[in-house]
Nucleic acid binder design. Structure first.
Lengths: 424, 424
DNA sequence: ACAGTTTCCCGTAAATGC
DNA sequence: TGCATTTACGGGAAACTG
């Protein structure tokens, strides 16, 4: 009865959330003579799953049988199953948590499609299986689930290997980087360039290893925390994909965001340019944040690079990043100075890069009110910094602090002292 | 079998959302001799509902039977039904939308509690009914539903009157104002004072009528739009309750928010005070917003009152209102001037009122970054206002505008011109 | 106690019904 | 078509569960 696969399917729902609707489609790739028959297809979930592995079990919602129709676009037979839903089958007998059990986002599942075709006296069984699926119960599991799907599809063509992650294969950096760039292309409309990928490779493997196209293990990619951080490489990168998707799509597509560049390299690049040159970078120490760094004139000819505290998704929901950049101001000792952001690295005048992202006109007149906006400001102070821009002084006694303040205040300006701080 | 009610219930779930869990409790108010019996109570939904009214019908989730237990606190018998859920029974036969059908938030329902008690040879049927309930399918219906519950409980003690809203009674303003103040007490921790209630009464009925304790109809309270607005009195008031609950609780409880005061009255009050006096008012033209108004020195001795564009829930989610007030700045012709908010009306120095609401310490040091905050600023300009604070000039030809500007700019400062604008 | 996982439910958006 | 009402589901938080 199990014939070689005569049909195939458009793999779409690679990650499925329980209690959430999804749909799937099978297509018959063989043209049949136009005779009078019905081809009824039935889907089942996890038929081929090896039992007793401690995997979760799911019931698929009822509408699991369909008659294939002629698809108008391609002319071939297809069946689309809509409004399907998975619900976990709480098995009291076979508890989860056996020895081997993987995290849920590495547990692979599949949909099986079966049809019976009776033609010219022959009885042909048609069957195919979806690509591996990951089933999650909450969107917060989606990044990990997506990583599994990516990794698995990158390294194997065998849809039936549902225990891939019990011993996940490694991938070469060139494979990984291609997949990453492709993710950016498809999800946010612009891939990653050589410099951006090189920074990512260094981050994942270190500079030597990524040049030599070393192997990236699944664990390095998705499970181990980055050095000194509390999140993995993919968790970090995915948080940035999400940030771009929600708040930075336009300026990302236009290439205004260098983004993947270390603090050291950003500093070096900016120091080559003229005062007022700036660039946009994703935070490496926090998830889903972006900052800008710019070159500011110090008072003895030695220009220094500053960065603002990175903006979160929530900040950007109040004000677009382009508006934040346009309206950014520094207040030094209570005096408002101009916007220090003049040239997007290397030499693009601010308005050439960001002029087109005008803040949308307010939808209604607010007659009678003083108009009021949030703007993003940094307070610099030459004497008594409001929230201790001199963290190393905080532990000193008040007396000592007074002496230091007195020493600093006559000659220094606020920006010089910032020179001594590290920045990310 | 229908005996007089021997039991009563703690009415809690006055508004129930479909597919969302709720619980309810019945208590037996009569002490029974301690004999060996079980008192089993069953709940049903909408038993007493008059049929054929076009009302929606609901099924209550299964756990509808319970044995009463002795409650440790009171010593009386009670049964708590937990994890109940309503789901609409889609009746294909009796469609909704009959002649009489009310909006869903005015459709009253009830839970019926029934017990059978066999004691000393007697067979006693116990029965009681909940207070009227409103069933909604989405939280956006909650304000209207809550209004119905309030109104109905204010005007009738008869729980069985489920068609109350087919001809809703009116209430006197004194009844309504008591209920409103009580809403503020219980929901946000501080009721409404005489001045606040008087403003609300004027808004609802006009000044004469509210002084004479006129009648407020259900329609005026909840259905008709306020004059010139696109929302009803209750919709507006509820949006403010919600704003306070989520973002202003502390300063509301401390009485820092005058809140309910018309623009004219605020203006008059502030003009009595010294320059820098300010007060906090809820927007009357938009839902769930708050603004501040302050007295600013004009340049010819005639102080004027300004208000900023009201803040929304979303604005306040970025920065607390106390912080917005503390950091508010005016920029006049590119020059930063100090915070104009000095004294909370009538005479409270800013820090005495708001000093205690320090912005919470940032949870982590952001070493190496220039600290950066949003602050709320207004740009005043003496010559060319950026986003037309002079709306009445917009229609003039550019040439005329130039002439006017030239006339104004030498002597005027930005604040004088604002004097001519209405403000809310 | 705790981490991985699921459930609960508000609030935005879209779909549906009348 | 427009308005009233419900459904869908992301995301924060709480509950669950070994």
């Amino acid at each position: 009865e199990l014939q070689p696969c005569l049909s195939n399917m458009a793999a779409r729902p690679l990650v499925i959330k329980t209690s959430t609707q999804f749909s799937t489609k099978v297509r018959l790739l063989v043209k049949l003579p136009e005779v009078d028959y019905q081809l009824r297809v039935k889907i089942t979930f996890d038929e081929t799953l090896p039992p007793g592995q401690g995997n979760r079990l799911f019931n698929i919602s009822s509408n699991n049988t369909k008659v294939m129709d002629v698809e108008s676009s391609s002319g071939c037979l297809s069946a689309e199953f809509k409004r399907l839903e998975l619900r976990e089958r709480k098995a009291t007998y076979e508890p989860r948590g056996n020895q081997s059990s993987l995290p849920v986002t590495e547990e692979l599942h599949s949909i099986c499609y079966r049809g019976q075709l009776r033609i010219q006296g022959l009885n042909i069984a048609l069957e195919t299986t979806s690509r591996p699926l990951v089933v999650i119960s909450h969107v917060c599991q989606l990044p990990s689930a997506w990583a599994s799907v990516m990794w698995c599809n990158m390294l194997t063509d065998a849809p039936e290997n549902l225990s891939f992650f019990s011993r996940a294969l490694s991938a070469s950096w060139s494979q990984v980087s291609e997949v990453l760039s492709w993710q950016f292309s498809t999800l946010v409309g612009r891939g990653l360039n050589r410099e951006q990928l090189s920074m990512l490779g260094d981050k994942l493997l270190g500079p030597q290893a990524s040049n030599n196209d070393c192997q990236v293990t699944w664990s390095m990619f998705c499970k181990e925390n980055l050095a000194g951080k509390s999140f993995s490489f993919w968790t970090w990168l995915d948080s940035i994909l999400d940030l771009i998707k929600k708040h930075l799509r336009d300026i990302w597509v236009d290439g205004c965001i260098m983004g993947f560049v270390t603090k050291e390299r950003a500093q070096a690049l900016l120091k080559e340019g003229q005062v007022g040159t700036f660039l946009l970078r994703f935070s490496e120490s926090h998830l889903g944040r972006i900052t800008f760094s710019w070159l500011e004139q110090g008072d003895e000819g030695n220009a220094t690079v500053h960065s603002v505290e990175p903006y979160t998704k929530h900040s950007l929901s109040v004000m677009s990043f382009a508006d934040i950049l346009r309206e950014y101001r520094v207040i030094t000792d209570g005096v408002l100075t101009g916007n220090p952001l003049k040239f997007l690295y290397p030499h693009v005048p601010f308005d050439d890069a960001f002029g087109k992202y005008g803040s949308p006109q307010r939808d209604e007149e607010v007659i009678g009110y003083v108009e009021c906006n949030f703007i993003s400001v940094s307070m610099f102070s030459t004497s008594r910094p409001p929230r201790s821009p001199f963290p190393e002084l905080c532990e000193l006694s008040p007396g000592t602090l007074d002496i230091i303040n007195q020493t600093i205040s006559p000659s220094a300006d606020g920006q010089i002292s910032l020179d001594h701080l590290e920045w990310e």
